[in-house]
């Protein structure tokens, strides 16, 4: 078992040093106390009802020692902890800014050139990145264990965190602040690319999956655009209606109106989800305007049509 996840950011190693420091101190005390406990329980166990015990009520030197030593140790830990915390909280001036919005239940990332992604955060290796974050609805918390960073996203307010990835690869993003039904599904990936790859990715126009037909592209988008968080494809009920057999289905809306699900309804539901909510569901879906392009909507609709 690995006690700590891989250290993939510049600060992670320093946080780990603090963790190891506290772990060692704790282990020493833990072993010492447990040993005393066991030794006393065995050595001084009652042998007869007439055991004689000393009347011993205090020992000043001992008491001073066992007050002073823990006091010094905890103060050392405190100072060590906040020195590293200070660095965790202070982004370098040249950090690249990426805006993050948390929604029930997806992550949305906006880059400075207008590009935006869902649940996938692309960052270059070796360059500090500052995330400027807010939430659209309730509290969320951005957590990447491998980077040892975490920060709450608070609606109506901006918070930030920074990191410098030092390893290429993919790392999990968790939502660490409870945010409702699909809290545990609010996952994302940080994809750390080499600086060159990152530039290439950033300037590339997002294409539908090359060589794929619309249905296949839609299937890919279903995961990539986080539809999967709320809509099943096997008919099981989730936060939103299932996609299985959705096209052509008769639905009753919250206001009692009856509609048939067609292309226009689906398109509208993606761009203005609150407009026509199916009865029995909470109006909580975020709008995907500006995130999912017209082409992608077409692909998604084609995919939904295929789910009979």
């Amino acid at each position: 078992m690995n006690w700590l996840p891989e250290a993939a950011s510049s600060i992670a190693g320093r946080v780990d040093n603090v963790i190891w420091f506290v772990t060692i101190i704790s282990l020493v005390f833990f072993v010492f106390i447990t040993a005393l406990l066991v030794v006393f329980a065995i050595k001084y166990r009652r042998r007869s009802e007439d055991d004689e015990t000393p009347y011993q009520v205090s020992h000043h030197t001992l008491e001073v020692v066992w007050t002073i030593i823990p006091s010094i140790l905890v103060m050392v830990i405190f100072v060590y902890g906040f020195v590293v915390f200070e660095d965790l909280r202070t982004p370098p001036k040249d950090a690249m800014e990426i805006n993050v919005t948390g929604k029930q239940w997806l992550w949305q990332f906006h880059y400075d050139n207008g590009k935006s992604t869902i649940n996938e955060l692309f960052v270059p290796e070796g360059r500090p990145v500052k995330l400027v974050m807010t939430s659209d609805d309730v509290l969320h918390s951005f957590f990447v264990p491998e980077f040892r960073v975490k920060q709450d996203l608070v609606p109506g307010m901006y918070t930030y965190l920074w990191f410098k990835a030092i390893k290429k690869g993919e790392f999990n993003i968790f939502c660490a602040e409870y945010c409702g039904t699909n809290h545990s599904g609010m996952l994302g990936k940080v994809k750390v690319l080499s600086p060159a790859d990152f530039e290439k990715w950033k300037t590339s126009k997002e294409e539908l999956i090359a060589g794929a037909n619309l249905v296949e592209a839609g299937a890919e988008l279903y995961t990539k655009r986080a539809c999967i968080g709320c809509h099943s494809i096997d008919g099981s009920p989730m936060v939103g209606p299932t996609f299985k057999g959705i096209f052509g289905r008769q639905e009753t809306l919250a206001d009692g109106q009856e509609i048939t699900v067609d292309e226009n309804y689906l398109r509208k539901s993606i761009y203005e989800p609150q407009a026509q909510v199916v009865k029995g569901y909470q109006p909580i879906m975020p709008s995907f305007k500006g995130i999912i392009s017209d082409n992608e909507v077409s692909a998604l609709i084609a995919y939904m049509k295929s789910l009979k």
């Binding site: 909280r89 800014e97 805006n99 906006h110 500052k130 400027v132 307010m157 901006y158 918070t159 930030y160």
Partner: peptide, 9 residues
């Protein structure tokens, strides 16, 4: 005193 970043969308 909560430090909130400047935002440039």
């Amino acid at each position: 005193l909560r430090i909130t970043p400047k935002v440039n969308f």
